[in-house]
C-alpha cells in the first residue's frame, strides 16, 4: 500500500510549467529525498502532494493518511505573540503531557512558555518538527528543513530526523540540496528538474549522467572542488584552454 502516489502530476503557474508529468510514490517506512537545482520544482512537488498548490494529473493519498509537515520557512509576525506550547496546539488542541513529550523528543524540554520569535533558527526548526510529530505521522514531509542552519546544526537536525523515524517507523519525504549529507541516509533519491530526471538508490543516482549534468562531476563540497582541479590539469595536458565552462567538463569526453 503506497502512502502517497502521483501519476502524471503537472503544475502550471501562469504560463510556466513548473512540473510536468511526474510519476512518484512513497512506500511506508522508506526515506525518499528529492534533489534538484533551484527552481526545479522540488518544493512545488511537495506542495502539490499536500494539496497546497493546484495540480492536474492524479494525486492519491492513503485514506486517512497522517502527515507531519515541516514547511521550508515560517515567518511569524512580531505582532503575533506565540508561545511554543500554543503553537504546537494549532489547529487542534493538544494535552500538556503530549506537548511536553514532543518538545523533549526534539531536545527542547520545557520550552512551552518561550516565545516563538525568541527561538534560534535551529530551535525553531525543532519546534516545527515537534509539531509534525504530534500528528503521529505515517509520513514526515520536510521541505529543506535545515535551510539557514550551520553545519553542526544541520547534521544534528538530520540525526534527529533519523532517530525519530526509527522510533515511529514513519516514512520520510524530504527536499534538500545538501546532497552529500542527505543522500547517504536515503533509501531512494529522486533527481528533479521540472520532470523526474532519474531516480534510484543514492549510488545509482549519483552515477547517473542526468544527475551529473545537473550537479557537475563531484557530489558536493571538497570532493567536487578536487575533481574540478583534477579536470583542469587533465585538460591542460591536452592543450585545451581555460575558457571551458565548468558544466561542460562533465561532457568533455564527447566534446574533445
Amino acid at each position: 500500500m503506497k502512502l502517497i502516489e502521483a501519476k502524471g502530476l503537472t503544475v502550471r503557474f501562469g504560463g510556466a510549467t513548473v512540473l510536468e508529468a511526474v510519476n512518484f510514490a512513497v512506500e511506508p517506512g522508506e526515506i525518499v529525498t528529492v534533489v534538484g537545482p533551484n527552481g526545479s520544482g522540488k518544493s512545488t512537488l511537495l506542495r502539490a502532494l499536500l494539496g497546497i498548490v493546484p495540480s492536474t494529473g492524479e494525486v492519491r493519498r492513503k485514506p486517512g493518511l497522517r502527515i507531519g509537515y515541516v514547511p521550508q520557512r515560517l515567518h511569524i509576525d512580531r505582532g503575533l505573540p506565540m508561545p511554543v506550547g500554543r503553537f504546537l496546539s494549532l489547529p487542534r488542541r493538544r494535552g500538556a503531557a503530549e506537548v511536553a513529550a514532543a518538545l523533549a523528543r526534539v531536545g527542547l524540554p520545557g520550552a512551552e512558555a518561550r516565545a516563538m520569535a525568541d527561538l534560534s533558527g535551529g530551535q525553531f526548526q525543532r519546534v516545527l518538527l515537534a509539531r509534525a510529530l504530534l500528528m503521529a505521522p505515517e509520513i514526515l514531509i520536510l521541505d529543506e528543513p535545515t535551510q539557514g542552519l550551520d553545519q553542526p546544526g544541520e547534521a544534528g537536525f538530520y540525526r534527529l530526523i533519523d532517530e525519530v523515524r526509527r522510533e515511529m517507523g514513519c516514512a520520510v519525504l524530504m527536499v534538500s540540496h545538501d546532497l552529500h549529507v542527505v543522500m547517504a541516509a536515503s533509501d531512494r533519491v529522486i533527481c528533479l528538474n521540472g520532470h523526474v530526471c532519474c531516480e534510484g538508490t543514492p549510488q545509482v543516482v549519483s552515477n547517473a549522467p542526468e544527475y551529473r549534468a545537473l550537479f557537475g562531476l563531484g557530489t558536493q563540497g571538497a570532493l567536487a572542488l578536487y575533481r574540478h582541479a583534477h579536470d583542469h590539469d587533465h585538460e591542460h595536458d591536452h592543450g585545451h584552454g581555460h575558457d571551458h565552462a565548468h558544466p561542460h567538463h562533465a561532457e568533455g569526453g564527447q566534446d574533445a
Binding site: L74, I76, L90, P91, R92, R93
Partner: peptide, 19 residues
C-alpha cells in the same frame, strides 16, 4: 479561532492540517 490563527501563521501549514 484556531483555524483563523493557523491560517494566519502559515497558509501552507493550514492547508496541510486540513484548514
Amino acid at each position: 479561532w484556531s483555524a483563523l490563527l493557523t491560517a494566519t501563521l502559515s497558509e501552507d501549514l493550514a492547508q496541510a492540517s486540513g484548514v
